[in-house]
């Protein structure tokens, strides 16, 4: 067997290797994504978690090839089902968009065109990739709306986005994204704009549909609670890099990075008193033009003095601590375990 033949079988369905997305601006180079690597198999869900500006949305846009319109400098590799996408031509990537990979956006009101009906927008998405008549596409659109749980889909199909409620719009958005049975679905903050009960419904919907279609799903969120239910794997991003990644079980039950601890501490929980519940992360996310030296998180890290001088001079490597659980931190495993067990976990 040759390498050429073997290569696809060795790769995961989605494999991102050392992805970098940089933007040239008048103020300097914005390193939105700076060396990101991860893998995702069919039928699995990856949750990408981080504050805004951590590079999670930019990396998903890069996967979709949408960064091509924004004059970004990109390097690294993105393999989707055996094809490298960064080096593929625009037209080929376009033909994959919407069909092989689809995306659900954060704010469905602004993400849907205000002048076209919901149905027209689903029909349009379907007909690009399927040579069918309008009538067939319309039937399909109604089916899709029905499948995502929109009541009276055959009449609502002719409504405009502004005539839908927020939750309905997000369902419609999902219907649009799923209309071509994508093998990779990226959901960028799919529930942020929605109230809590609707959030749960939408997350359930995504889960159901993933099981039905067998797609690979990436959920991007700043809210660990969202991915807790859904994700098989979790990647925590900070300043354009992955600081911790691993199975959801590992990351939730044995988090290793101080930033992940901070995120967990920020999760609202109903069973605790408000005063002791929240452990917010001090400080603000770093500028992506002047990323702090060494560990980018160090200015906000409560434990930065433990590893000594390396904190500010060396960028920590993402190290596998067993079972695919990777952490980028200068502290020793023992130090981290002690802090987690003694100081952090009891407060959560």
């Amino acid at each position: 067997m040759t390498d050429l033949y073997e290569a696809p079988t060795q790769r995961s369905f989605l494999e991102v290797d050392d992805l970098r997305v940089h933007f040239n601006t008048d103020d300097g180079v914005v390193k939105s994504v700076d060396g990101l690597s991860f893998k995702l198999e069919r039928g699995k869900t990856l949750g990408i978690v981080g504050e805004s500006g951590s590079g999670k949305s930019v990396s998903s846009m890069a996967l979709m090839g949408l960064q091509r319109y924004a004059k970004a400098k990109m390097s690294g590799e993105i393999w989707l089902d055996g094809e490298e996408l960064l080096s593929a031509d625009d037209e080929h990537v376009r033909s994959l968009r919407g069909k092989k990979m689809a995306m659900i956006f954060q704010d469905p009101l602004s993400a849907m065109h205000p002048f076209y009906t919901v149905g027209a927008q689903i029909i349009e998405a379907y007909r690009i990739h399927h040579k069918v008549t309008k009538a067939v596409a319309r039937k399909h659109a109604i089916e899709m709306l029905d499948r995502v749980g929109i009541p009276q889909p055959s009449s609502r199909v002719d409504d405009y986005p502004h005539q839908f409620s927020g939750g309905m719009r997000q369902r419609a958005m999902i219907a649009m994204a799923l209309s071509c049975d994508p093998e990779l679905l990226i959901a960028d903050e799919p529930t942020t704009a929605l109230d809590v009960t609707v959030q749960a419904q939408i997350l359930d919907l995504i889960k159901d549909l993933q099981q039905e279609f067998g797609s690979a799903v990436i959920i991007i969120t700043h809210d660990l609670g969202v991915v807790a239910e859904l994700a098989d794997d979790i990647m925590v991003m900070y300043a354009g890099r992955s600081v911790e990644q691993g199975s959801a079980r590992e990351v939730f039950h044995s988090p290793q990075h101080p930033y992940t601890w901070g995120l967990l501490g920020s999760m609202p929980r109903l069973d605790r008193d408000r005063s002791e519940r929240l452990l917010p992360i001090k400080g603000t996310p770093p500028s992506l033009i002047n990323v702090p030296s060494g560990c980018a998180f160090h200015p906000r890290c409560a434990f930065k003095d433990l590893p000594g001088e390396a904190t500010t001079s060396q960028v920590p490597e993402l190290v596998d601590i067993g079972g695919g659980h990777k952490v980028a931190c200068h502290m020793t495993v023992d130090q981290r375990l002690r802090i987690w067990t003694n100081e952090i976990q009891p407060k959560l």
């Binding site: 979709m64 033909s95 968009r97 602004s110 690009i128």
Partner: peptide, 15 residues
């Protein structure tokens, strides 16, 4: 620069 343009592209529409 609007979101719906990004959506349109994400659907795979020709430019």
């Amino acid at each position: 620069g609007e979101d719906f343009i990004r959506t349109a592209r994400a659907k795979g529409l020709p430019e």
